Amino acid sequence: MQFLIDNFFALTITGITVGAVYALVALGYTLVYGVLRLINFAHSEVFMYGTFASMWIVMLLGGHAGAGAGQVILWVILMFVAAMIMSGLVAVVLERVAYRPLRKRNAPPLVALISAIGASFVLSELMGLRSKIAAWFGLDKTLGAYVGNSRVNSGLPDIILPQPLFTIGDYSVTNVDIFVIVGAIAMMIVLDQFVRRSRLGRGIRAVAMDAESAALMGVNRDRVIQLTFLVGGVMAGAAAVFYMIRIGITRYDVGFILGVKAFTAAVLGGIGNLRGALLGGFVLGLAENYGSALVGTAWKDVVAFVLLVVILLFRPTGLLGESLGKARA
Rank of each mutant, 00 (worst) to 15 (best):
G248A: 10
D253K: 00
F256W: 15
V260K: 00
K261V: 02
G270E: 06
R275G: 15
T250Q: 04
G248M: 09
Y252K: 05
V267Y: 04
G276Q: 06
A262I: 04
G259I: 05
G255W: 07
L268S: 12
I247F: 15
L268N: 08
L268Y: 07
Y252M: 03
G276E: 11
F256H: 13
V267E: 04
A262Y: 03
I249P: 00
T264Y: 06
L258K: 02
G248F: 05
F256I: 10
F256Y: 15
V260S: 05
D253S: 06
A265D: 02
L268G: 09
A266E: 05
R275F: 13
V260P: 00
R275C: 04
R275H: 10
T250W: 03
V267T: 13
V254G: 00
G248I: 10
I271C: 08
R275A: 12
V260W: 08
R251V: 01
I271M: 14
Y252T: 03
K261R: 13
R251M: 10
T264A: 15
T250Y: 07
L268F: 08
T264F: 04
G269Q: 08
Y252E: 01
I247S: 05
R251N: 13
V267C: 11
G255V: 03
T264P: 04
G255E: 04
V260M: 14
G270V: 09
Y252I: 02
G272F: 10
A265E: 05
T264N: 11
R275E: 15
T264I: 07
V267D: 04
L258I: 14
A265P: 01
I247W: 07
A262G: 11
I249H: 04
G270Q: 08
G259K: 00
L268M: 15
A262W: 03
R246M: 12
L274N: 09
D253Y: 01
V260E: 03
R275M: 14
I257T: 14
A265R: 03
V260I: 15
R246L: 12
G248H: 06
G272I: 07
I271P: 04
I249N: 12
L268R: 11
D253C: 00
G269S: 14
A265Q: 04
I257W: 05
A266I: 11
L274C: 08
L258G: 01
G276S: 13
F263I: 02
Y252Q: 01
G272C: 11
I257K: 02
F263R: 02
G248W: 06
F256K: 02
I249R: 08
G272K: 14
G270T: 10
F256T: 11
I271S: 08
N273K: 14
G272T: 11
I271E: 08
V260T: 13
G255K: 12
L268C: 10
I249V: 15
G259M: 07
I257D: 03
L268E: 07
A265N: 03
G276F: 13
V267A: 11
D253P: 01
F263L: 15
I257L: 15
A265H: 03
N273M: 12
L258F: 09
G269W: 08
V260F: 14
V254C: 02
G272N: 10
R246I: 01
V254Q: 01
G269V: 10
D253V: 00
L258Q: 05
R246F: 14
V254A: 14
F263G: 01
F263Y: 14
I257G: 00
F256V: 09
